[in-house]
């Protein structure tokens, strides 16, 4: 991982909302300037509906801002065509989405190796996947299917999947949801050590414990990053 820098400049997101009497745009995320740097773990807090996930999705190349830019090492993500942006997402970003997002037709280890094998040859990546699962305490579930997992186990599969391609930037949306305290600690320690290894990490969470692992804690309310918490 090099000295990467992901930043938003005036990035905002407006959604069209239809009401009974009228229709209007509302600002899910107000124009935002934010930087993520290599080696930093940033925690973004806020109430549900405050715009945290929308901001994360814009920064992860999944949702084009209504205005403003998102740049990675100076490259505006949304100037790339879909194929290039998709490849960039695969090679440089890791995303842990909310909820249970393991693919049900694949085994645990297949879920974890899939991102790697999308653009690369199978060069023994399964051993790395198994190592990740080992670190997350679910090595024994490698051949299980998502329908056989608990909510917490399934979340840890998604963490392993996000780390599989050794991304420069890691986005985690409620990564510790459904996890008990011990597992929450394991995941947060892993995210911390990943940042320490040189990655930029953005964690959207309600988890109080996450702040202990953060370099910066931001609070978001009504689409606006209010202040450094």
């Amino acid at each position: 991982m090099g000295d990467i820098r992901l930043e938003t400049q005036g990035a905002c997101k407006k959604f069209f909302r239809k009401r009974r009497d009228s229709a209007q745009y509302f600002d899910a995320v107000a124009p935002t300037d934010l930087q993520l740097a290599a080696g930093e773990l940033v925690v973004l807090k806020g109430r549900s509906g405050s715009g945290k996930t929308t901001l994360l999705n814009m920064m992860a190349g999944l949702l084009e801002p209504s205005e403003g830019t998102v740049t990675l090492d100076g490259q505006n993500l949304y100037e790339l065509d879909d194929a290039a942006l998709s490849r960039l997402r695969n090679e440089r970003f890791g995303v842990i989405p909310q909820g249970q997002t393991a693919l049900h037709s694949l085994s645990v280890v297949q879920n974890v190796t899939l991102p790697y094998l999308m653009y690369r040859d199978d060069d023994g990546c399964e051993s790395r996947a198994l190592e990740l699962l080992e670190n997350l305490g679910i090595r024994q579930l490698a051949d299980s299917y998502p329908s056989e997992l608990s909510g917490g186990e399934s979340r840890r599969v998604c963490v392993a999947r996000a780390l599989m391609c050794a991304p420069d930037v890691l986005f985690a949306d409620e990564p510790t949801g459904n996890l008990d305290d011990a597992s929450t600690q394991v995941v947060l320690e892993m995210l911390r050590s990943y940042a320490d290894a040189g990655a930029a990490v953005l964690v959207v969470t309600h988890e109080q414990m996450a702040e202990e692992y953060a370099d910066h804690v931001l609070k978001m309310d009504a689409g606006v990053i209010e202040a450094r918490a």
Binding site: L62, S86, R87, R89, V95, P97, T101, A102, Y119
Partner: peptide, 16 residues
């Protein structure tokens, strides 16, 4: 839809 959203997240293009 969710399954395909996940594929998007991990790097699949619309063409994929």
């Amino acid at each position: 839809a969710k399954e395909f959203a996940v594929l998007r997240v991990i790097g699949a293009s619309r063409k994929d």
